[in-house]
Simulated assay, not measured.
Amino acid sequence: MIARLEENLGAALFNREGRSIRLNDFGHAYLERVNRIFLEIEEGERQLKDMMGKQNQVTSVSIALPHILPFFIVEFMKRNPDVHIKQHSGSASMMKQQLENGEVDFCISMSPIFGEDIEWMTLLNEEIFLSVPPDHYLANRQSIELHEAAHEVYINRPSGYEFRDLTDDFCKQAGFVANTPIELEEAGAILRLVELGLGISFTPQLSLLHQSLPRTVQIPISTPMCRRTIGLAWNKRRYFSEASTEFRNFTIKFFKHIPLTYYNDKNAEGFGDA
């Protein structure tokens, strides 16, 4: 079958090495087109089922913000109790592949996702603070230039995490490499160790949504500008059901009203009416 296909196309799609074969440049180019065809067929089936009322109310999202997920899901389900959410996770590169392959409807990521058929919109321009113990000599500062904390001990995410790469770049801009002997995955655990005086850390704004945070002081960083962009991405070629459309509208509204709802300790139901 492969030989007949190559004969019809007039080009070899594979490099043959002994018993194994691997796609060559022609093969990769052709496969990309074929995948698009199959995606269009799948999207056509989704659309027809939705039009006939046979499609369950399901939407899928890949999200890189586990600390915001409980708030996010609870608020969405309050308003859409009949919608089933399939949640995935992954790096920015994995999310791009998930969108291109039609594995998910949306991605909420900490960095822009670009692609020929991918649409990206900014949800939140998030500030990143320097967190120190309450009795730290910097705790009373209204703001700080990051180079002033060059000799501190840092507690951060493990190498390879997007947030770690981002904060390492902040340090590089400030002229130093952070001494990071402790690496943890969970933001709350990092802040707990900061509270105990084992080091200082970078804390993104969304990590401060928790109601019972460890006792730490967040200092704004004046130089360099320490922020990250949270955004929503989707495949423009994908058919959106009513449930998916509602999810997108809700996501935009949720991130728009996060500061009004959670940072000011207002009742969570307030943002639905804001």
Rank of each mutant, 00 (worst) to 15 (best):
I144P: 00
E148R: 08
E148D: 11
E148F: 12
A150N: 00
H151K: 11
H151C: 10
H151P: 02
E152V: 15
V153L: 08
I155E: 00
I155R: 00
N156L: 05
N156I: 05
R157F: 09
P158M: 05
S159W: 13
Y161N: 11
R164H: 12
D165A: 11
T167I: 15
T167Q: 08
D168C: 10
D168W: 08
K172H: 15
A174Y: 01
A174D: 05
G175H: 10
F176M: 05
F176L: 03
A178N: 01
A178V: 04
T180G: 03
I182E: 04
E183N: 13
E183T: 11
E183R: 11
L184T: 11
E186T: 14
G188H: 09
A189H: 14
A189E: 13
L191Y: 02
L191D: 10
L191G: 02
R192H: 14
L193C: 08
L193V: 06
E195D: 14
L196Y: 09
G197Y: 07
L198R: 11
G199C: 06
G199W: 14
F202R: 00
F202D: 02
T203C: 00
P204T: 06
P204K: 00
Q205C: 04
Q205K: 09
S207I: 05
S207R: 01
S207M: 06
S207N: 12
L208Q: 15
L209K: 09
L209C: 12
H210T: 07
S212N: 11
L213N: 01
P214A: 02
T216W: 02
V217L: 11
V217F: 13
V217M: 12
I221E: 02
P224C: 08
M225D: 06
M225P: 04
C226G: 09
C226Q: 10
C226V: 11
T229W: 07
L232Y: 07
A233I: 09
W234N: 08
R237E: 11
R237M: 09
R237D: 14
Y239D: 03
F240A: 02
S241F: 12
E242G: 00
T245K: 09
E246H: 14
E246A: 15
E246Y: 06
F247G: 04
R248V: 07
R248P: 08
R248Y: 12
N249G: 08
N249Y: 15
T251W: 07
K253S: 13
K253I: 06
K253M: 04
F255P: 03
K256A: 04
H257L: 14
